[in-house]
Design a protein around this nucleic acid. Sequence first.
DNA 1: CCAATCACGTCAACATGGCTGACATAAAAG
DNA 2: CTTTTATGTCAGCCATGTTGACGTGATTGG
Lengths: 170, 170
Amino acid sequence: MADIKAGVNQLFLREEELRTGMELLFYAYREFTAEPDEILAEIGFGRAHHRVIYFVGRYPKITVSELLAILKITKQSLSRVLGELVRQGFILQQTGVRDRRQRLLELTEKGVELERQLSETQRQRIARAYRMAGAEAVEGFRKVMLGMLDDEDRAKFTPPLPARLAAVKR
Amino acid sequence: MADIKAGVNQLFLREEELRTGMELLFYAYREFTAEPDEILAEIGFGRAHHRVIYFVGRYPKITVSELLAILKITKQSLSRVLGELVRQGFILQQTGVRDRRQRLLELTEKGVELERQLSETQRQRIARAYRMAGAEAVEGFRKVMLGMLDDEDRAKFTPPLPARLAAVKR
DNA sequence: CCAATCACGTCAACATGGCTGACATAAAAG
DNA sequence: CTTTTATGTCAGCCATGTTGACGTGATTGG
């Protein structure tokens, strides 16, 4: 009897724990995007513009297809927002040198400024959370988040071979 | 000179660390919603339906305004999806007893079944991540995620006073 | 070298899920 | 009995995703 009760309690705790995780993700993501969304709305942009600005800033000279692979949206969806960003001078397209079919994307100064402004509140939010939680908790956070990803996305956070070798050598 | 270099490196690490956090959130959220989205698409529903189903399942007898406060969308947006869910027999509305203006929402059996099906992949994903990361990491994850929330949402995860008292008594 | 493939762009049409504003009704509360 | 509250509804707009079709210039493989 005690065993059964303990088992049920185990299940309940587990269920509750998992739901907490789901909800943390829901609320965190929503609040994480709320502040940039407000800024974006003022200049007639949306969250999609932010994502493009962010990843172009993150990976200068990124190609359109690489960006598509990260965002996992169709090129038609991307071209709408990307076109606006280019026309309004936030992003620069340069024809690739090795492959002249490619359009290499880069933030202009104006783009860098917007990126900084948009991500600032998010950086602050994360920095605050990291500070409050402590280094050990941050490591746990990273571990759990990585565990939620599929292999493909998880690989983005695994240093590529050269860096791994360097780490081993140390 | 060494100080400056160290300082710069500090800043770089910090910046990189924060960006990693931002991206983990982006990728994790996307993958977290991808599988339910597929199931939902098959039956002509969207993510909004899932959220309603989820929270009605989570808080049986919830009122419309409580649900609105959780989801933070307009009643017009909610009524579109809620109406479909009610008409198609996933959710039951009962007039409140104490306050007859209220419509208390509950999942039907059909609703419970759909909720279970939708959340199953998510539960598995989280369970897997928790298992892989270990109990300590999970605690860190919770801490960091809580730190990202505004007070209002964070309060949802703080046990209400009675429970806190009980915990102290123990 | 030329046909096939590739990177990218564009047009058109549609769905989902947010939003605002206006108005309605029944119940509760002061 | 007037006001406020909880809910619902109609109508229209916007952002962002989708599919499908088609075009153009650059690259590449047989």
